[in-house]
Design a protein around this nucleic acid. Structure first.
Lengths: 202, 202, 202, 202
DNA sequence: CATGAATGAGGCTTCATTCAT
DNA sequence: GATGAATGAAGCCTCATTCAT
């Protein structure tokens, strides 16, 4: 039974991953449940053994994506050492690197935004985004505050505001990379961070 | 005939504005053509005298939106005087202020992103975004470069990178305001700009 | 516009009549909405301009049927003259005659019963049946009471009970005719009424 | 092996009884095979070891029901003594009493009617009903003829017609009780029988 | 020009049945 | 024998688009 459970969970994940691919390719509305089934290599009806509806599955993809990317970010942060500046720079680099492996799935992010704006699941999504952004802002804010306490950054810096803006900046750089293949988010981010950190250090 | 043209154009705009409202409320997929017709106070069939399809109308809304917001931004910029720092700060303020009147329509932005990610019109949208971002980056970049030339900002600042990041930051702050009513984009932006400008000035 | 309205109502009735035929042939579950559309000579989607769902249409068929048969019964009754006995006999005859033109649609009755027993519309149906039976019992009861008052029937007859039983008997005779082609409801009813009326007259 | 057979038969009956409950609650179409399995406390697949299809099982429920109620009726009749009138009255009472224990399953009757009207098994059902009604009419007819022969009832009474009507009346009274909780089939039947028997005795 | 009734392709979901374990 | 996960045919309903008025 324990084995069974594991299989069931694994299969659920397999379906979610297949769905992620298709949703990324065609968007929520453009995706047919049948396409997901094909991608997952299962029958159409089997999907409904694991998820109640297309929307449910989409939300599961969202959670999977948040988990996946959030986990990476957290790993990066906890693995960091050195001064606050160094850690901010390393974090930036790590996030911009994630772009490479995220590229194929990045359009999912737009679908999630869109869903949070107008789908019937809007509240579920909005809340999750709010929380996700909140968490991340919190982490970055703590990092900056640590820099202030260490005397590395100026005491009059408003950590919360900088954190909020910075988190947004990272996101927006990936967004621009999505729109424009010629855009290099990593280089851009690094050069920008040099300026910002100088501003923090005063 | 000139008169007719004008009437026709006005009506077209009225439809686009009505459509914008409904698309903002319900998203592209969630919007019924019939709803738009009701909002515009015309018959469903009449829509098709002015637009070839729902997608066409949506793209017209997009163009209208870009025009509208772009025009505002350009007005702000051209009206600015003073040092580069002052102008950057004024621009920030002006953009964050636009939030107030944009709030109701902001979810359109997400729909546009989503459309650029997966709709059948994706290329049309992607290109427009690329160009829009490009234009805006260009303007901000020029502003920063001016600051460098005036000796206000450090010569080693990479204007293009800072511009790209900054444009993204503004966008992302509005996004966070959308998700989180408690979030104040104006204050956050101002405090952040203080730090950034210090970094630029070195 | 008045003309429009009339057309709309007529079309609605046409659809109901087409639906009645198909439901009678195949039952509620066995009927495809598409079949009804074909029978009505309209597109599948057009149905939904007139009815919200298959169930709604089915209930409309029910109401149409009740109206149709109820109207006949009422006409028969009001047209009757003579003694109470004569009127009871004439009513019996009229009802059993209705069998001839009802035969094709009679299976609808079973569908209605079934729907009142277990469909999601059960309460709507149950109530309608309760009311329909109640009305009819009332009419027959009044007829019997009139017979008592005229001295034609015994004063100790319980009009309500006899009416309830009689109304049921008529129904059940048609039911048996439905199951058994060899069964003649008219003759059976007449012979039975002779006995019953003798019992009433005492 | 004999033992096995018995177990198998018992289990089959258990399934049928479970199915009867569920069909009575939700009707044929509304019932899921899975629900029956749960009610019977077995696996869904196991059902198909005992019955070929949902329809088959439904017909088995029908046969079980006919057997069950028919057996009761026959017991009542054979146990009766006294004059024909007394026996008719006793039979009436016995049948109306059966209502109490049948109430929960009564909606099955409607499902059977409905099935005989339109399901794919319609002929099987129709025939069974025809036979069932026929048998019952026969028994009642014999009872009445006995009354005639004994000189208790008038010789000009058409026993077959009265029997057919009476059988229908009983049925229809239970039906009305089903629709209308306030309706008392026993009292109604008794008062009606007083009148009818007076008519028979003339 | 304007309309809205009519349309039917298309999609999500259900559920009886099968079959590998 | 027993099971329940997997299946896919089938059906209800939606809604962008057309076209006769």
């Amino acid at each position: 039974m324990a084995f069974r459970q594991k299989n069931k969970k694994e299969k659920k994940t397999r379906i979610v991953e297949a769905a992620a691919k298709v949703f990324a390719r065609r968007g929520f509305s453009g995706t047919l449940v049948a396409d997901i089934a094909v991608e997952a290599g299962i029958g159409k009806g089997t999907l409904y053994e694991y998820f109640d509806s297309k929307e449910d599955l989409f939300f599961a993809v969202f959670e999977w994506f948040v988990q996946k990317t959030g986990a990476e970010a957290k790993v990066s942060i906890s693995a960091l050492g050195g001064s606050a500046s160094e850690r901010l720079e390393a974090l930036t680099e790590s996030l911009m690197h994630s772009w490479v492996e995220l590229e194929d799935l990045y359009s999912l992010v737009m679908e999630f935004w869109s869903a949070s704006a107008s789908s019937q699941m809007r509240e579920r999504f909005k809340q999750a985004f709010r929380e996700g952004y909140g968490d991340f802002r919190h982490i970055v804010s703590a990092l900056i505050r640590e820099g202030i306490e260490r005397g590395e950054f100026r005491p009059d810096v408003d950590a919360a505001s900088v954190a909020a803006a910075l988190v947004g900046t990272w996101d927006a750089l990936l967004l621009q990379a999505w729109f424009d293949e010629a855009f290099n988010p990593l280089t851009t981010a690094k050069r920008f961070m040099t300026v910002l950190i100088r501003g923090l250090a005063g």
